[in-house]
Design a binder for these strands. Structure first.
Lengths: 229, 229
DNA sequence: GTCTATAACCGGATAGAC
DNA sequence: GTCTATCCGGTTATAGAC
């Protein structure tokens, strides 16, 4: 991961091997599934020794993390195009959730190890850990630009808290989607719809004096969740 | 697990061994942690062979599940006492969350395997799977009796949807608490407070015509999440 | 049918030679 | 940076004892 490359020569070769491993792993994970694919399989099909595979990746799980990171970066760049299409808050949100499902779909079968790994506090893959902080920050930035210049206009305190809230909702949606065995993950899409609707309705209620207490508590909750990073 | 016992003799001995394993496992998990305790350790300290441990428990994870199930049953019976103390909705909710934290606390260090295991769709421990359905039903029943005869009065559609909502919140709280490294899990307690407050405020807003759409969407969302069990 | 004990198996991960 | 040989521990297979 953090290996130094003193010269272009080595870099090229090293990168080639690294990519080869990733490609093989992805292929095998997709066809046989994560648990039925052994590191020995991956090394063998990549034409290298087991030890070499571990030279490039610290663990089998790390391979999966790599795919996820790449996808999230991809989604970030594509989200800009989405926000250019429409300024409507609801549509933007819906399109973004759709984009997540769509881009993650090819790897859905084995991405569940992400959730599993994320549930281990010790793991660097924990949702509350440093390794994933960069990707979380990217996600938050996406939600910030979703809110910017949208209709209805969202500003002030609401604009402060919404990114965190939307990020949490997105994480929950992805978790649900990973386990969703309905055809084409229809249930997850329905869930994304209702979550979108809930947020839209909540935004509408925000200015209501009677709802003041509710949003105060919600804001406090978000602070408590996100402060630990 | 589902072994038949044709006579009391065998049952007694069998149960004794079983309990011995559980006791040893719990002790070792608590002192060394889950991953540093091997099944060989547990068998050895229990004075039995490795194979015997596997005769009683299908896997190392199953041992942890056993502790969790026992705790949840314990919580169920204690919750009745709590609801006898007060009819106040907010207080009942807060006391119930506190009870969860308190009873689960001794095993907090190794209960994270629950979350990990629960994240594997194939696993019988998945939150959406049959093995855990009974415990989920028990939890839901607890929330139903929390709502019954409380002040402010909760009935109708709201009484229908609240148990599911509270269950989801509870699961999220426990997940957060498992990873919470703040002293004495203070952050989790704060989070439980704000979640409680959010629910209380939401209940207040329920009758508001302007909030109709919001609750409709919320209800739909809960249906989508819970229908898959 | 109920239980125990021993010896593998399997696959993720590591050590260390080259 | 790549290999081979090993470790380690969850899990399984098997052979019997009661």
């Amino acid at each position: 991961m953090q290996t130094k490359y003193p010269n272009g020569e080595a870099q090229t070769k090293s990168l080639k091997t690294r990519r080869k491993i990733l490609k093989t792993a992805r292929k095998l994970f997709r066809t046989r599934g994560f648990e039925k694919t052994t590191m020995r399989d991956i090394a063998h099909e990549s034409g290298i020794a087991l030890g070499a595979a571990y030279y490039y990746f610290n663990s089998k799980n790390d391979l999966v993390l790599e795919f996820y990171l790449k996808t999230q970066k991809d989604i970030e760049s594509r989200s800009l195009a989405i926000f250019a299409e429409t300024r409507d808050f609801r549509k933007r949100l819906k399109l973004l959730f759709d984009l997540q499902f769509q881009r993650l779909a090819p790897d859905r079968k084995f991405l569940h190890v992400l959730a599993r790994e994320a549930s281990s506090p010790k793991s660097p893959l924990s949702p509350f850990s440093g390794r994933t902080k960069s990707i979380r920050d990217v996600n938050l930035a996406v939600f910030k630009s979703l809110i910017r210049d949208c209709t209805p206009e969202i500003s002030g305190e609401l604009a402060e808290m919404l990114p965190s809230l939307l990020w949490l909702i997105q994480m929950a949606l992805i978790f649900f989607w990973l386990h969703d065995s309905s055809r084409n993950q229809q249930r997850s899409r329905g869930l994304a719809d209702s979550c979108t609707e809930i947020v839209v309705q909540a935004v509408r209620l925000y200015r209501l004096p009677l709802a003041r207490h509710l949003f105060k508590s919600l804001n406090r909750m978000l602070g408590e969740v996100m402060s630990g990073l």
